[in-house]
């Protein structure tokens, strides 16, 4: 029977090593299947998060051969025969054990975003063309792969100053909501740290939901911040016409 060789990180923040496993291959098998095989047959205690196994919940995020990926949709037949596949936990968050990291920082960031705010008390009439942009952002499954790959967090540790792509996407969904009346540009500029993003697009590259994070969420938000803070001429003209 054909086998695949995986090098999986086993250990915690302080101590650990890559352990090599051989796993028999089935048709259409994904990395998560291989980890489950290890769990059921070799090492019961190998820690991994997962839920839906259909790329809908965003639990099984890890780095496969250095690329942030959902293990449930990374097919083994995408790799060359005899290739040793390295599976690491996410780098950007504190490691708990094996493939599981502490992503609680993300949940804290989320609390700081102004929720949907509307004065329209009646029944809402909203047309499809007005929500198409928002619906793209709401596809997000919070796998945090974009947060993991973003070099601002990954390499520069700007967790305290930068909300990360996931939360810029959420903010974009609120800012562009046709019924929302709150403004989040001040938040974006200051607490959210949108200026730290240098639009190098890795978030978009890894997004399993294929959300155009940079082009459709972050850049439009940057432009909205420009409107409010960096465009003196427009501000001046606007002031002129208002009077």
């Amino acid at each position: 029977m054909a086998k695949v060789t995986l090098k999986v990180y086993r250990g915690d923040k302080e101590k650990g090593e890559f352990k090599t496993y051989e796993v028999p291959i089935e048709d259409g098998m994904v990395i998560l299947d291989a980890i489950h095989y290890i769990q059921a047959n070799i090492d019961n205690d190998i820690a991994v998060r997962w839920n839906c196994k259909a790329a809908k919940c965003g639990s099984c995020s890890a780095e496969v051969n250095g690329k942030p990926s959902l293990m449930c949709k990374t097919r083994l037949d995408r790799f060359a025969k005899d290739e040793v596949i390295t599976v690491q936990p996410l780098k950007t968050f504190p490691l708990i054990k094996d493939l599981v990291t502490d992503v609680s920082w993300n949940y804290e960031v989320n609390k700081h975003i102004t929720p949907l705010t509307s004065k329209d008390e009646g029944e809402w009439v909203i047309y499809q063309e007005d929500i198409e942009r928002v619906q793209e952002f709401r596809k997000c499954i919070e796998c945090f792969l974009c947060q993991d790959v973003c070099h601002v967090l990954r390499d520069h540790d700007k967790h305290a100053n930068f909300a990360g792509p996931r939360f810029l996407v959420r903010t974009a969904g609120l800012e562009m909501h046709p019924k929302d009346t709150a403004s989040r540009t001040k938040y974006l500029k200051e607490e959210g740290g949108i200026g730290y993003c240098n639009i190098t697009k890795c978030c978009t590259e890894v997004c399993p939901e294929e959300i155009h994070i940079t082009d459709n969420a972050i850049i439009p938000l940057k432009e909205r911040v420009v409107d409010d803070f960096y465009d003196p001429i427009a501000k001046f003209l606007k002031g002129l016409f208002k009077k």
Partner: peptide, 15 residues
């Protein structure tokens, strides 16, 4: 993507 570089916290991006 996912390749480390001369990181560090002095990074200011476009701020």
């Amino acid at each position: 993507c996912g390749v480390g570089h001369g990181g560090g916290s002095s990074y200011c991006g476009e701020t």
